[in-house]
């Protein structure tokens, strides 16, 4: 039981640490942490279905982008301020996720991966072409949010609170009977059917959750960058959370966040040295997949296992 307490205590300590960082770090670094947190949430939302549910989605950017565009359009066309816009955007993304999920979950495994990718690309084309509504390839620029939110330090705290809450919510979901049913489905779907599980609904609801959290991340991104553009929906954006989850460690909770942090750092550091940072990203993934399939955090967790509560 003692180890369990450490499991809840450490994240809180980490939050306090981040809170204090907000007081001392210059805006430049706060912006980096904001980006890490948003991408961390994006990655975690995918981890929910991919890591725990075994559903490989190659179109998760559809929901990140949908959330981003929903918030951007709400900010542009209605008098809504950021917080209600994000809330509305989240609900809309959930509805969109329900439709996409209902279509894609008619197929399984690799077919599911291809269908998710195909549908996200459909959204990309739509966003790219529909100048009147989405700004086409230019995207939507120059959005205004309240002056309070424009201040990087304030926005830092806002993102910290939202992402923190979402992580907590995802944690609760994963530790619930629903979350364990998801793991059971990943392990052995056939068996759960004979236990009386409604597999399709179970997966669809998980998919909608994942879509909504990705939508929140997308909305937070618009609040940070004050714009939305088609690349947010593109297939390369769908690959990012997958890479982060693998980088950090699939089948671990904190791996998604660790992966996002490493991803942003790598992009900055390598991107500064060479324009070919994607080459190194690709090479890194190959090495990880070949030799360290459990990811960085997965490796750390293995070493720390005796000291921490079981986090699977």
């Amino acid at each position: 039981m003692k180890s369990n307490r450490i499991g809840t205590f450490l994240p809180l300590l980490f939050l306090v640490f981040l809170f204090l960082l907000g007081q001392i770090l210059p805006n430049f670094y706060l912006r980096i942490i904001i980006e890490m947190a948003i991408l961390g949430l994006f990655a975690q939302s995918l981890n929910l279905i991919m890591g725990y549910g075994g559903m490989i989605s190659f179109g998760h950017a559809a929901f990140y982008g949908f959330g981003a565009y929903a918030v951007a359009i709400l900010l542009r066309d209605t008098g809504m301020s950021l917080v209600p816009a994000i809330l509305t955007g989240t609900v809309l993304t959930g509805v969109f996720g329900f439709i996409v999920g209902a279509i894609c979950l008619r197929a399984a495994k690799l077919y599911f991966a291809i269908l998710t990718m195909a549908i996200s690309q459909l959204l990309f084309v739509l966003v790219y072409q529909w100048y009147a509504f989405t700004g086409g390839d230019n995207g939507i620029h120059g959005l205004t949010v309240s002056p309070w939110m424009t201040d990087p330090q304030h926005y830092y705290y806002f993102v910290l609170a939202v992402v923190g809450l979402c992580f907590f919510a995802i944690r609760v979901i994963l530790n619930s009977p629903f979350g364990y049913t998801l793991r059971a489905l990943r392990d052995n779907q056939e068996r759960t059917v004979f236990l009386g599980a409604y597999v399709w609904w179970q997966k669809l609801i998980a998919f909608v959750f994942a879509a909504m959290f990705a939508g929140i991340a997308g909305g937070l991104y618009v609040g940070y960058d004050h714009m939305a553009y088609p690349l947010l929906v593109n297939w390369s954006k769908s690959a990012e959370p997958i890479l982060m989850v693998i980088l950090g460690g699939i089948n671990t909770f904190w791996g998604a966040l660790v992966g996002a942090v490493l991803f942003v750092i790598m992009e900055m550091v390598i991107g500064k040295i060479t324009t070919y940072w994607l080459f190194f990203l690709g090479a890194t993934i190959l090495i990880l997949v070949m030799f360290f399939p459990k990811g960085i955090w997965g490796y750390v967790e293995e070493k720390l296992a005796p000291f921490l509560a079981r986090e699977r």
Binding site: L110, I242, I250, L281, V289
Partner: peptide
């Protein structure tokens, strides 16, 4: 013998490597 995901990642990583190599 590994999960589908790992296979996908390999071919995706190759995209990044090959594309940047052609650019180089």
């Amino acid at each position: 013998n590994r999960e589908h995901l790992m296979q996908l990642l390999v071919t995706y990583a190759l995209v990044l490597v090959i594309v940047d190599a052609t650019k180089f």
